[in-house]
């Protein structure tokens, strides 16, 4: 049986008095999964991802990471999770290396392991020479790469990413996919939102479609897609709802 890394149970989040952002959403992400989360703008993707990472409270349901409830022990859950938001607003007053060291300290990454991983990923994403510069001097893509290195540094069991491919150059996007696969082979799980259906189709083994805060479809990509393309399925879901 597959080991569940992330279990979302009947999640419900309401903003204000009555704006239901996510309603009765349940899904499981297992070790080795690259799980794509797709939906229109405002469907509830970012709300779900933020709730999973423990930075947004929710009104009902529960979220378990590696069997531990985010409600009961948020700090422990966060220690095995990495989160990269859609807009990499990093600490601009730190240099790249200071930022990575800060994360290393926060996640308790041992010094030699830290150095080794920083060197590996910084070389891979070609920003080694820029680590001494202030983050404020980085382009959007470079910030995205730095955020990725920071997320990978503590070898998390679960990586949660909001639109990870936005702003990355083609080479970095290719390498990121490689890293995703390596991490999953090592037993981690990836849960990410995307609007790029092609990427989801080629990269993910599982997919979930969310609309108006409700889960419309989820499961193995072949089961969800059937004989058509993911794009066709997605459009069909939208059209069915419009009728």
């Amino acid at each position: 049986m597959e080991k569940k890394i992330l279990e979302i149970r009947h999640l419900r989040k309401v903003y204000g008095k009555n704006k239901v952002a996510v309603d009765d959403l349940s899904l499981d992400v297992c070790a080795g999964d690259i799980y794509g989360f797709i939906g229109q703008n405002g469907a509830g993707k970012t709300t779900t991802l933020r709730a999973v990472t423990g930075i947004l409270g929710f009104d009902a349901g529960d979220i378990l990471i590696d069997g531990i409830s985010v409600k009961d022990d948020p700090v422990l859950c966060k220690s095995v999770t990495a989160y990269i938001p859609d807009n990499p607003d990093l600490y601009e007053f730190l240099t790249g290396i200071q930022y990575l060291n800060f994360l290393g300290d926060m996640y308790g990454v041992e010094k030699t392991v830290r150095q080794e991983r920083i060197a590996k990923y910084a070389d891979m994403f070609r920003i080694s020479g820029d680590l001494g510069s202030l983050v404020s001097a980085y382009s959007h893509g470079m910030k995205q790469k730095l955020a990725l290195i920071g997320a990978l540094m503590h070898a998390p069991k679960l990586i949660v990413l909001d639109e990870p491919f936005v702003g990355l150059d083609p080479e970095a996007a290719f390498k990121l996919k490689q890293v995703f696969r390596e991490m999953c082979d090592a037993g981690s799980a990836i849960f990410f939102s995307t609007h790029v259906l092609d990427v989801a189709e080629k990269l993910c083994n599982k997919i979930a479609i969310i609309k108006g805060g409700k889960l419309i479809a989820s499961g193995n990509i072949d089961d969800v897609r059937g004989d058509t393309s993911l794009e066709d399925v997605f459009m069909e879901v939208l059209e069915n709802d419009a009728r």
């Binding site: 290396i97 290393g104 300290d105 926060m106 010094k111 830290r114 020479g129 820029d130 404020s136 001097a137």
Partner: peptide, 20 residues
Amino acid sequence: RGARRAYKSKDIRQTKPFAA
């Protein structure tokens, strides 16, 4: 902000989360 410098890997110092 044309103040970029080429970075050379140096020894890093490890601290506790609160100190960081």
